[in-house]
Design a protein around this nucleic acid. Structure first.
Lengths: 189, 189
DNA sequence: GAATCCACTGAACATATGGTAAATAATAAT
DNA sequence: ATTATTATTTACCATATGTTCAGTGGATTC
């Protein structure tokens, strides 16, 4: 629980009562490897705070290609934010790459937290803006760096999880083929 | 003013009093072509709602290359959100590509709006999440589409402003050189 | 209206990455 | 252990895009 609270405290203050409210709504849930936290076509009903394991965000683009667009490791919230909030059918999958442990929040409880804790919307807004900023940075790398240097950025940016992610997913994330990434890895060492 | 209010109403409800508060804080401001709304190294003090003109978001990456990472046309808010909010020194420039007319909000007034209007943080949060979602989509195109098809996406996605943006900026946005874009344009027609 | 500047186009060659197909290596299943 | 399955590496050639350099056309300035 400590990880969860500390994570949130990065974005705003909470008093003891508010912390207790959050904790009271969190349910420990485990996912097996390759389990789906969110599936395209379904409405996301939960947000999870990832305690252990690695997760990827996946979708199929209009050419039917599977794109892994992000990885999340321990110590982050995981959900299809936009669709969770609006309760619209998701367009992406969130899949456990390794076995995962979450602290899970149901939509109703999450809403209660939002309605009860003054300043919660601001906390969420800050989280979203941080994600936005990171997303812009990632796009930037895609434009200005070649695949080898993007792979190096991946290795440092996802240091703790890099070794736990299959190469094919990493290649998709980097925007190259598996074969290219394999070639790059050979030349880097 | 109508454009401004309608834009905000997409993200949440406002009563008449709240609308009046927002209007009372908006100041019309004009920018000449190539003027800077925000400069890297300075703390952004304003948010502008763009009434006419086109603006680009620019930064210099660690290789010193100038990257145009986004365009905004009429009917959108324009600022370095994250830096404006946190009042941290900006890392990017926001530059008028054409002469621009804004409804400008000073930081203090924007804060007052935020503190006065119940539900404002939620509105901002939704705006940020929408931006985040678009940002992810753009990254996706970069990964899965070749330059020609990205250019076509640009033409439709920025239909109203495409013709007003110099080719070099578009090329930078698409992640290719000016020469490549020129070549692509030749082959598309 | 000449001179200057800037945006854009074009061509020739270099290179990174893709596509295809196959060979190994690692992991899981029996 | 053996087999079956999946993940990764390799090799070959095709191609999109980069790089460099030059040229053209349209603005802008004097």
């Amino acid at each position: 629980m400590k990880e969860l609270i500390n994570f949130i405290l990065q974005f705003g203050k909470l008093n003891e009562q508010q912390i207790q409210l959050i904790i009271s709504k969190a349910t420990p849930v485990k996912f097996a490897k390759e389990g789906y936290l969110t599936e395209a076509g379904k409405v996301p009903r939960q947000v999870g705070f990832l305690l252990s394991g690695v997760v990827r965000f996946v979708y199929y683009n209009n050419k039917g290609q599977e794109i892994t667009h992000y990885f999340v490791g321990e110590g982050q919230f995981v959900t299809d934010y936009a669709r969770f909030e609006t309760q619209i059918v998701a367009s992406e999958y969130i899949q456990a790459i390794t076995p995962c442990e979450f602290l899970m929040f149901e939509k109703e409880d999450w809403d209660e937290i939002g309605n009860t804790i003054v300043g919660w919307a601001e906390i969420e807004s800050k989280m979203a803006k941080k994600c936005l900023h990171e997303s812009i940075e990632r796009r930037s790398r895609l434009i200005t760096e070649d695949a080898a240097s993007r792979y190096r950025s991946f290795l440092t940016g996802f240091e703790k999880i890099a070794s736990r992610v299959p190469l094919a997913y990493v290649a998709s994330y980097l925007g190259i083929t598996q074969q290219s990434l394999s070639r790059i890895r050979k030349n880097i060492r």
